[in-house]
Design a protein around this nucleic acid. Structure first.
Lengths: 346, 346
DNA sequence: TTGTAAGCGTTATCAA
DNA sequence: TTGATAACGCTTACAA
């Protein structure tokens, strides 16, 4: 292992300038391929830079330019399939444009989310992309971004109250409609519903969509079979036990995520309930687990990669055009379609 | 939606200083809770800071302090279960210590990995944590970190050649041994092996462990049943078809990740091959899918959260102690134990 | 085409 | 306890 001792100390453009007998400005221009410089010096500078092991210091240049080339991202949890796919797609797109992503997790804690927003603001990210925590109902911690005109885009879990940021959300209302209609078409009228908390936009809209079609079909959703809670496997099992403890039993379960749907399939298996004959199950997100379990689960695909593309597109647009930010008053909201993936549980 | 127009312009400590008739140095001290300041002014300054909507500028302070409080992380893909868990655990730990994580994905491309290493170096991250791309065999793109004494830790997929960085790896050799022994104990002597490429430390070591115990048991690994390739579902299916195309057929498959093991279970199901009677399967990583599929798959747990804890611990140690960096010549390598999770495929 | 000089916002040093 | 000053490394008017 050879380690070049010459490189042991940080070189700046000043060092290059001295070594070459030119000014720091010249070096800066050469390195940045500024046209106001001769081809000859550009070459000399670049060679010397390599020779000295010079590396651009983006802290200094960010300070001077007031641009960090860093995009902040706050997600509830990267281990959620939807977000993992989203992040990957977004990152690949932004990396091509010379931006880095600072990925942070709120772990669904409002307090952590607030802290992260502050930190990312202090880091002077050029833009912020956020999917909200489960119980975030106040958005004041993002005001700084709004006030300074720093592009702010919410995706998936977005503010439920009016807030002057850009919003790209899945068509969750339609997701609820599709799932509800599907169950009705399959002849179910006794439906159990396990949802996330209604503080969160996605669950609120899915619920509204579902209720809308049930009402139209004159099917009522029994209170005792409705749950609004964090969608963990543990919570799912508890709810399922409660649902099946009574005399009357549902014909279908609409689970607002696939973790819950998977739990429902496992629960049914344990209880010897036949799927889909005795119980139909529909999930949400098209998590890989939904297709792997037996029987594979009917679910709603949210197309995370499509959402990432839209976010990236809007982001780069806002970043490029200062004007875009002001003239974007209208058209600040986009809806990404969802589709049902029919499998064996319905 | 009320937006405070006073906050529309960036405030610096100089603005606070002016407003209060004190010097910028005083403001800086007050804000940083420097002891060399009176309680009274500290309070006045902090109040004024809030009033003016002041926000700390970490770009400036990073430049001045030569510390960014940012840790770079390069992973092959965040959608891999092992890495998703690792990132979450690491991030939660570092966030508590005031560090932010800059998460980047190489997508298993050496070229992207090189580019990311350069970018992160330019961003002057305080440390870099890396799990290598599948085919990375040269580590020169990390030399800058070594030369400048910036903490560099490899985890999981680590350099296979001697390289002066810190290494925290899973006990992959032992994982190979455990899996091999288990299959032998179950009476298998005809074993198919689907591994990742041997350029990658983890697959190389698992392979060595496996071969070691097979040799001891006088079981030979047939060349035609050995595959070293990227472990995607598609590749797995192709290999499985090849394996089962001939007259002779294996009694067991050791898959070096659970994506492959899942594919094997699905393949067997499709072919009507009975698991575990006719074919035993063991996977690697304890991905949630392995426990959800029917039959649930025996696999090796790598304990990603434990690995994250070790990485965080070492990282914070290196970050705190300059000395630690130099005196760490010895003890630069740690091995995290693995355990077998026995389920229904063996 | 190149150089000079000022400044981005913060903080450490030295002096008062 | 506080202030004045310089410096971190880079970029960009403005001048030459």
């Amino acid at each position: 292992m050879k380690i070049d001792k010459n490189e042991n100390t940080e070189k700046s453009i000043v060092d290059i300038a001295k070594a070459l007998g030119v000014s720091a400005a010249t070096v800066s221009r050469a390195l940045n391929d500024n046209p106001r410089i001769s081809e000859a010096t550009r070459k000399r500078v670049k060679e010397k830079a390599i020779e000295l092991g010079y590396r651009h210091n983006s802290m200094a240049s960010s300070l001077r330019n007031k641009k960090s080339k860093i995009i902040g991202l706050i997600v509830p949890r990267i281990s959620m399939y939807f977000h993992a796919v989203f992040i990957t797609a977004l990152q690949n797109r932004l990396q091509n444009e010379g931006y880095s992503l600072m990925v942070c997790q709120s772990n669904d804690s409002v307090a952590v989310e607030q802290k992260l927003a502050n930190t990312l603001y202090s880091s002077r990210v050029d833009a912020l992309v956020v999917s909200l925590a489960l119980y975030t109902e106040n958005y004041a911690h993002f005001d700084g971004f709004i006030n300074r005109g720093i592009p702010l885009i919410f995706y998936d879990r977005v503010p439920t109250k009016d807030y002057p940021a850009h919003i790209i959300q899945g068509d969750d209302y339609r997701g609820g409609v599709i799932a509800g209609n599907h169950l009705i078409e399959m002849g179910c009228s006794k439906i159990a519903y396990i949802s996330g908390p209604l503080s969160c936009s996605i669950y609120r809209e899915r619920t509204e969509g579902l209720k809308h079609v049930l009402k139209k079909a004159k099917v009522t959703l029994a209170k005792k079979w409705c749950f609004y809670q964090e969608l963990t496997a543990e919570n799912a099992w508890n709810s399922l036990r409660q649902i099946f403890a009574g005399d009357e039993v549902p014909e279908a379960i609409f689970a607002s995520n696939d973790t819950t749907a998977v739990a429902a399939v496992e629960f049914a298996r344990e209880q010897g309930i036949k799927i889909p004959q005795e119980l139909k199950i529909i999930g949400y997100s098209n998590d890989p687990r939904a297709s792997i379990i037996s029987p594979p689960i009917t679910t709603i695909d949210q197309h995370p990669d499509e959402m990432a593309h839209r976010v990236a597109y809007k982001l780069l647009h806002l970043l490029k055009d200062k004007n875009a930010r002001e003239h974007a008053e209208t058209n600040r909201k986009e809806i990404v379609p969802v589709t049902m993936v029919r499998r064996m549980t319905t």
